[in-house]
Design a protein around this nucleic acid. Structure first.
Length: 201
DNA sequence: GGCCCGATACTCT
DNA sequence: GAGTATCGGGCCC
């Protein structure tokens, strides 16, 4: 059985909000010593340019934000709260800083490895942005990693959303004291399965 | 189920 | 020196 096509760079070199929306249902794959760890992308968030006061690039080009100004389709991995790594994929054209934060996936392959790293029941393995990086073993080493490279250890496979699934659009999470209108931009996207019993919000 | 809080270190002011 | 795109444990319903 041939594996699905990987998302090409042209997918990422488009408006960030469209990229975030269309990443839902695609499969994030991490090659870990020859083994596949993967999951369907369930939640994403768009961070768009220097004007977006929730985006790290709000204070311009720095050592940290440099990757966001670079080639689309590369990973922007940053450290926060003194403990956690966050995985983003760079979007838009080179020179325009933008990225999509991956906030949740549904574990698909490599459950045993993920459980060993996380020590949690399956439904808790990857349902948060720092949980999924922990489960997949993603840290600073992946900052700048090219998801579109031939020999990528991290990439996204084209799946197409499951039939009957719906997309929930909401404001972004955890922005604290970010001023309007950025605080309320509807740039968080969640995939709801046909038979999911999601009741929150 | 929910709320509160502490951990922890990196980035920019 | 302050703030942070979070998590998990402890506590109280």
């Amino acid at each position: 059985m041939p594996s699905p096509a990987r998302l090409p760079r042209s997918f990422f070199s488009r408006p960030t909000v469209a990229v975030a929306r269309e990443l839902l249902g695609q499969r994030l794959v991490r090659l870990d010593r020859g083994r596949r760890l993967s999951g369907l992308i369930l939640e994403t968030e768009a961070y768009v340019g220097e004007d977006d006061l929730a985006c790290h690039a709000r204070s311009g080009r720095t050592a940290r934000t440099e990757v966001m100004y670079g080639l689309p389709g590369r990973a922007y991995v940053y450290f926060t709260y003194g403990l956690h790594w966050m995985l983003n994929v760079v979007a838009e054209r080179e020179g325009f800083p933008a990225a999509v934060l991956l906030r949740a996936i549904q574990p698909c392959e490599g459950l045993d490895t993920m459980r060993r790293r996380r020590g949690q029941p399956p439904e808790r393995l990857t349902d948060g942005p720092a949980k999924l990086t922990q489960a997949l073993g993603i840290d600073r080493d992946f900052n700048g990693h090219d998801l579109c490279a031939e020999d990528a250890r991290l990439f996204i496979e084209m799946m197409g959303a499951p039939p009957g699934s719906r997309v929930l659009v909401d404001r972004r999470v955890g922005l604290g004291r970010t001023p309007e209108p950025w605080l309320s931009k509807p740039w968080n996207f969640r995939l709801l399965h046909p038979n999911s019993h999601e009741l929150s919000e």
